[in-house]
């Protein structure tokens, strides 16, 4: 049930990201809801769950907009895995921690994305605009991350209450 719920939320966030979120461009950059969702799942449920959500989100992105499958899937899942591992011993739930992890996670995501895109020949010289894309994107993701973390916590409570905890 938990998996099904996360798959559905991932698809909904992907649809919002590719359609409605086009209105929300700041400095030509938009926040990445599916990435922030994967990061929040990694913080909340561990690196494996985060990586699984990252694979699904990245896979959808690759299928709909890529020239092959794997670029976004690798970048998103690896980022969520690293953030999940890195946040293991941190106190979860505080907005400032989530925001810091979302900021760092977005920078790591852009770094992995650029390296994989460079290795696969998709980007030839990405470094000249790396900071112009990564920093505003990290700031935007940082701002929305407490909201999405709150959403993930609510999903967890919902699933625990209705499906997992047996009395």
């Amino acid at each position: 049930m938990r998996s099904l719920c996360y798959i559905l939320v991932s698809i909904v966030l992907f649809l919002i990201q590719t359609t409605i979120l086009n209105i929300n461009w700041i400095f030509g950059i938009k926040p990445d809801l599916p990435l922030v969702f994967a990061l929040c799942v990694a913080i909340s449920n561990g690196e494996r769950a985060g990586a699984a959500v990252g694979v699904l989100n990245g896979f959808l992105e690759d299928v709909f907009f890529g020239r092959f499958i794997g670029l976004s899937a690798i970048a998103k899942s690896a980022t969520a895995y690293l953030v999940g591992v890195g946040s293991k011993n941190l106190y979860k739930g505080r907005a400032i921690i989530t925001m810091a992890l979302a900021f760092i996670g977005t920078i790591i995501y852009n770094l992995i994305f650029v390296v994989v895109a460079y290795l696969t020949g998709e980007l030839v010289n990405p470094w000249f605009q790396f900071f112009a894309i990564a920093i505003p994107s990290a700031l935007q993701n940082m701002i929305i991350s407490p909201l999405i973390y709150h959403g993930v916590a609510k999903i967890e409570r919902f699933i625990d209450f209705y499906f997992d905890i047996k009395y």
């Binding site: 590719t18 086009n22 938009k30 990445d32 992105e61 907009f65 994305f113 895109a117 990405p126 894309i133």
Partner: peptide, 14 residues
């Protein structure tokens, strides 16, 4: 136009 690439690196629309 019905959708737009979610990443900030490429510019692809559907």
């Amino acid at each position: 136009v019905i959708a737009r690439e979610p990443s900030n690196w490429f510019n692809v629309i559907t």
